[in-house]
Write a protein that binds this DNA or RNA. Structure first.
Lengths: 211, 211
DNA sequence: CCTACCGATCGGTAGG
DNA sequence: CCTACCGATCGGTAGG
């Protein structure tokens, strides 16, 4: 095999990161050896170290690339002058798109982050906690404006984000449900699930009143 | 250290499985060595093999114990002559309770099953696929009866189950939200998220009666 | 990007 | 349940 050539696949490091994403996703970070990775690329294991400093650097690249994309998107959403439910709608759709477009990276960021080394581990956990707190703040605002029902904002955030995180298995059976149906169904479930519903409240009231 | 004594912690094998659950959850299956496990228990690594045949047997015990609990509960729910939304309500609550009571085992069953060996790996995947298909069938029935809105049943199942699977992080910050609030919030989001709207009084009644 | 190689650690066995 | 130990494999380095 010749050397890895930069080109339409990006730098050599990008090629390594891409191949590693697939392997880490399929076998897990710890169960993937540098020899597995090298073989998948078509080089010998020691050659990898010309492009990366070590196995954990690859994991760092993947996890923070994903985390930064989510953070950047949230920055945009927060500054927009749109209704709260529309903000939540945008966040949900972005998560779904990330899962469909970059599902290997997102999967690793969701499931393998614990193998990050310090100080990256702490940084990652902080960034994640911060992200969730900011989304929870949006939901809280919606509750105060009576656009969203009175639920615990953090429960709502975790429920939504982990639900979308679970659709990775989806990728394999793309045929059965197309992406658009998937997206609209999920958005529908959550938006109507968290939205304040005056009709239901009225019915509930009339039941309690004994009508 | 003396030998592991059976007693209020169950058999020696149970003690090993319990300790392993914690370690597999914190470090991952592959990153947990038999020496880590032995040290946590207070014995030498080779002594473990008097009680178990190998590392993968422990993972099998954990994964299938969880899978069988879910399957057993679904068997009960299916045979019950209750409205569809109430069946879904029961399933959701069972998943939440499992997550709160046995979160280490459930976490491993959710995240580490890929490290199972054949034929256990195939058996586990089959059992899981079967479980989801059966829950999807319940949802489909609800759609046909116009109790549930017209969404893809399998998307609804994955959304619900993976959302609940994500609340494991919850365990750590028990203080911030009590279990009852957590449960009611999640049930509320999903039941109202999938219910056909406008609501009719009968369904609301049956849900309330089910609690 | 390769060959040659390192110390550490792995899951597991032999034998008592 | 222990000590002693096995072959295999790990992440990574030296040197070219």
């Amino acid at each position: 095999m010749g050397r890895i050539v930069p080109g339409r696949y990006g730098t050599k490091k990008d090629v390594i990161t891409k191949k590693a994403s697939r392997l880490f996703k399929e076998k897990g970070f710890s169960a993937t050896s540098m020899r597995d990775l090298a073989e998948a690329i078509g080089i010998e294991a020691p050659s990898l170290y010309n492009h990366i400093s070590g196995k954990s650097e690859i994991l760092q690249e993947i996890c923070f690339k994903v985390a930064n994309l989510f953070t950047s998107h949230l920055n945009e959403v927060e500054t927009g002058n749109i209704p709260v439910l529309q903000k939540i709608d945008r966040i949900i759709r972005f998560h779904i798109h990330m899962m469909l477009d970059e599902y290997e990276s997102v999967y690793i960021s969701d499931h393998e982050w614990k193998h990050l080394r310090e100080p990256y581990l702490s940084n990652f956990k902080n960034q994640r906690r911060n992200y969730r707190a900011r989304v929870a703040a949006i939901i809280l605002e919606g509750i105060e404006r009576r656009e969203i029902k009175n639920i615990d904002p953090y429960v709502a955030v975790l429920t939504m984000l982990s639900a979308i995180g679970g659709i990775e298995m989806w990728q394999r059976s793309k045929k059965s449900v197309d992406a658009k149906t998937l997206e609209e169904n999920i958005v529908c479930i959550f938006i109507e699930g968290i939205r304040e519903q005056p009709v239901n409240q009225e019915i509930l009231h009339s039941i309690k009143a004994g009508n």
